[in-house]
Amino acid sequence: MITSVLVANRGEIACRIARTCRELGIRTVAVHSDADANALHARTADTAVRLPGAAPADTYLRGDLIVKAALAAGADAVHPGYGFLSENAGFARAVRDAGLVWIGPPPEAIEAMASKTRAKELMGIEPLREVTEADLPVLVKAAAGGGGRGMRVVRRLADLDGELAAARAEAASAFGDGEVFTEPYVEGGRHVEVQVLADTHGTVWALGTRDCSLQRRHQKVIEEAPAPGLPARLTEELHALAVRAARAVSYVGAGTVEFLVAGGRAHFLEMNTRLQVEHPVTEAVFGVDLVQAQLRIASGETLADLGL
């Protein structure tokens, strides 16, 4: 049973996780940089551990320091929140190797879904190897990225080489990985995601859809749940594909599978192997505390035990 959780994050998500921990009677440990010594998440936790320095690279991104902090504070589990090290398989392994409970998916699942090309292969989707006029328009995407970086829409074959080079350079700069791939560009598609929960006993549930089509510079502006106007057949297909993605990597905990929907078809995009910023939208619709679900799943409970 989990009795003390170190939250390897700051700000809103650290406060959010701590709130649920308090409701469950679980002690919380915060970590903070020098700049965040008086931040709300540090002031309201049961224990706060200083990470010397101000820059995230010296503090919140130092997995070794965070593991040491957890052990020194007597925590028995680590919750990564979102951002920072939440999708870092090496950090997840370090937490486990230290004898702590990792409140997230297995490191192998994080690694498998970290690369968009690998994720698509797991879903049986092959990238375009050679682009022809008939394939246009196509989308060039960074394999390891997100947020629109390393992404280019190509409508003329003559522009392809230049856009590939530009995308590789941007991806290498932003993510330290210059791998890119091409896929058909879905014109006018809706961006729909499916929230999933999976326990350690092989059960996976899809908790509805969220529409996040309204975006600015590839960043989501509005989330709406359930995604409006989807035919029941298509909703069922999205749920089935999301569960299939989770099962393909033996997923555990909360995650999100993202799709483009156009012409009555669902096109798999990627899987986010963490709690998302947008998770409260699903919580409000389903009346479920996803952080509590994560904690209970990490403690070995089944989805049936959650009473959802």
Rank of each mutant, 00 (worst) to 15 (best):
G147P: 06
D177N: 10
P106I: 14
L85R: 07
A69E: 03
R156S: 15
G11H: 13
S115N: 15
G74I: 01
M151L: 15
G287F: 04
Q195V: 07
A293D: 08
G90N: 05
G188L: 12
I125L: 15
T282P: 08
I17M: 06
D64L: 14
K220D: 11
E130Y: 01
G11L: 11
T59V: 05
Q276S: 09
G99L: 07
D34S: 09
A284Y: 06
V252M: 10
A109M: 05
P52F: 13
P127R: 11
K220S: 13
L51M: 06
L260F: 06
G124D: 09
E193K: 08
L275H: 05
I13E: 10
H79M: 07
F268H: 07
A75V: 11
D76G: 12
L308E: 08
R16V: 00
T203Y: 02
L65G: 00
A92I: 01
P107I: 04
M151S: 06
R16E: 10
L230F: 12
P137Y: 13
P226R: 09
A304C: 03
G188A: 14
D289F: 00
V281M: 08
E270T: 14
R265V: 14
L164Q: 12
K116F: 13
G189T: 12
Q276K: 10
Q276E: 10
R168M: 04
L197R: 02
V196T: 09
D58W: 00
V288G: 03
L269D: 11
E283Q: 06
G307E: 07
D64S: 10
D305P: 05
V204M: 08
M123S: 03
A18E: 06
T59H: 04
S115P: 12
I26L: 12
A114W: 04
G189V: 11
A262G: 12
Q292N: 07
V78F: 13
A42H: 04
Y60C: 00
K120Y: 11
G189F: 10
A35M: 02
M271Y: 02
V153F: 11
A165C: 03
F91N: 08
Q219D: 07
D76N: 15
G63K: 02
D199M: 00
Q294V: 06
V277Y: 13
A77L: 05
R149V: 13
G146M: 06
H267T: 07
I125V: 15
A109R: 02
V101D: 11
A45V: 02
R118G: 06
F181K: 03
G189I: 12
L295N: 05
F91Q: 05
L6Q: 08
V153W: 11
A144H: 01
A92E: 10
L128N: 00
Y82H: 12
I103C: 08
V252G: 01
S213T: 15
R210F: 04
D46L: 00
N272P: 13
R50K: 09
T28R: 02
L241F: 05
R247N: 09
R22F: 14
A143H: 09
M271C: 10
M123T: 08
S115M: 11
P184Q: 04
L24K: 01
L100E: 01
A158F: 07
M113G: 11
L6K: 07
T47P: 03
A293Y: 03
P105H: 02
L51G: 00
V221I: 15
Y82E: 07
T20E: 04
G53L: 11
S213K: 13
R244D: 03
